[in-house]
Simulated assay, not measured.
Amino acid sequence: MRTRGPLTTLTAAAFLLFVLLAPALRAEPLRFGISPGDLELVPAPGGTASATLLVMNDSAHRVRFHVQVQDIFLRPGGQLDVLPAGTLEWSVAKLARLTPSEFELDAHQAMPIRVSVTVPPDARGGRYGAVVVAPSPILQAGGARGTISIVIPKLAARLLVHVKGTEVVRGAITGMLAAPRPGNRGADVKIVFRNSGNVHVRTTGELTILNAEGRQLARLPIPEALVLPSSVREFRLAWEAPALEPGAYTVRAVMDYGADALVAGELTIPVRK
């Protein structure tokens, strides 16, 4: 009996929570979108550049939105972290202006947001952030017992700025790893690209597999990627093939990141019986 009392109380509380949540769960879902996903600006030193972000309310009711600029960090695997404004040295948050930054939209209406960035005369390289759009939480009535706040996700467009005439575009493949897959059925490959310049770059590339005689066995595209300055990006590719014969296989990566010359890396995979 001593253990059933608390259990009964917990069950009753959970049931009450479900009853209070039921009206909210039946509410019309909030749908909204933004376009485009990237805003790229190229102001001159001491100048201003602008672009437009479109916010769309696809819901069946009126929604209030808040817009702000925050910092971004791209992890080596490509995941995007949104951080408080001013966290990183390349933050664009204090240089950006949003018009409007708070507004209401009727159902199925859209609002253009003017995004302007003014850089100081001594600015060099790139500045980065995200324009984050968030609706105000909607309070749904939960009967006579109060209200419930619904958690709403945020959407973000990357804000990529580089100061005209100050760009240093430099990068390299700084690491490659490869290992045969189980049963020698191809190989798993990891490529590390480092952006050592002062502006963002977009990379493309190709991976080629050769046998010991130099005959091409496979060509795999390296996914396109955005790499921020002073950052690395890791690419993982899987080459699937029938069981390989013993011998040495060459893995060659060639990448284009917008510079005058391509960059390349190469290694050998020994395959044993």
Rank of each mutant, 00 (worst) to 15 (best):
R127E: 06
T3E: 14
A51D: 13
R233N: 04
L237H: 05
V67Q: 06
A130Y: 08
T250I: 08
V232H: 02
G146T: 13
F103M: 01
R158Q: 07
P23E: 15
L7M: 14
V271F: 12
H162A: 11
K154S: 09
K273M: 12
R233E: 09
D122A: 10
M1G: 15
I209D: 03
G33I: 08
L159F: 10
R233Q: 07
P121K: 05
P120N: 02
K154Y: 08
G165A: 07
L83T: 01
L159S: 03
A85R: 07
P180Y: 11
P121L: 09
A187N: 00
I34C: 03
M1Q: 15
T208V: 13
V132P: 08
L177C: 10
G126V: 05
G77D: 12
P100E: 07
I72H: 06
L54N: 12
I222E: 07
I138C: 00
P121N: 02
L159D: 02
T87L: 12
I269W: 02
A44M: 04
G183Y: 11
M176D: 00
A93C: 00
N211P: 09
V132T: 07
L21V: 07
I138W: 04
R114V: 13
V131S: 08
V133R: 08
T99E: 15
L155G: 07
S101P: 15
R97F: 11
P100W: 07
V199E: 10
V163M: 03
P100Q: 04
T9F: 15
L80K: 14
L10V: 10
A253G: 11
A49I: 00
K273E: 15
L39F: 06
P43H: 07
D38C: 13
E89I: 14
D260L: 12
P76G: 02
